[in-house]
């Protein structure tokens, strides 16, 4: 298990060999407020990097969650569909969204480290 990576669109990525687990950051959930609906992709669906893969709705608005790496969906977190508040309570662990089989390891290089993301989200709070 490697260190988590982050995107400018507020997704986190945890890489384990060929597999990556993806969710939205704690900063994102704070900005969104109460999450009341989550729509996840279908298993085996293939996404290109930065394609919209899931939807998260707070009371105020709907937002897309992008697939930060190209790959195929191998697992989805049905628990957050049944109880979307898990995403607010534990966004970076129990509130994960989906897992993918990574197609191109090179894409990992474009992701931010935790420090880079923290400073990015401070400069770009919205």
């Amino acid at each position: 298990m490697t260190e988590k990576r982050y995107t400018k669109k507020h997704e986190w990525i945890e890489v384990n060999g060929n597999s990556a687990t993806i969710g939205i950051t704690s900063h994102a959930t704070t900005q969104l407020g109460d999450i009341v609906f989550v729509e996840l992709p279908q298993l085996q669906k293939v996404f290109e990097k930065d394609q919209a893969a899931a939807v998260v709705e707070s009371v105020k608005a709907a937002s897309d969650v992008y697939c930060p790496l190209s790959g195929e969906i191998t697992d989805i977190n049905k628990k957050i569909v049944d109880d979307p508040s898990i995403v607010n309570k534990d966004p970076e662990s129990k509130g994960w969204f989906f897992k993918i089989k990574i197609k191109n390891q090179d894409e990992l290089k474009q992701l931010m480290t935790k420090e880079e993301y923290v400073s990015y989200s401070k400069e770009n709070p919205n």
Partner: peptide, 8 residues
């Protein structure tokens, strides 16, 4: 996800 909202 895109968190930005229209602001003026």
């Amino acid at each position: 996800m895109n968190l930005s909202t229209k602001t003026q």
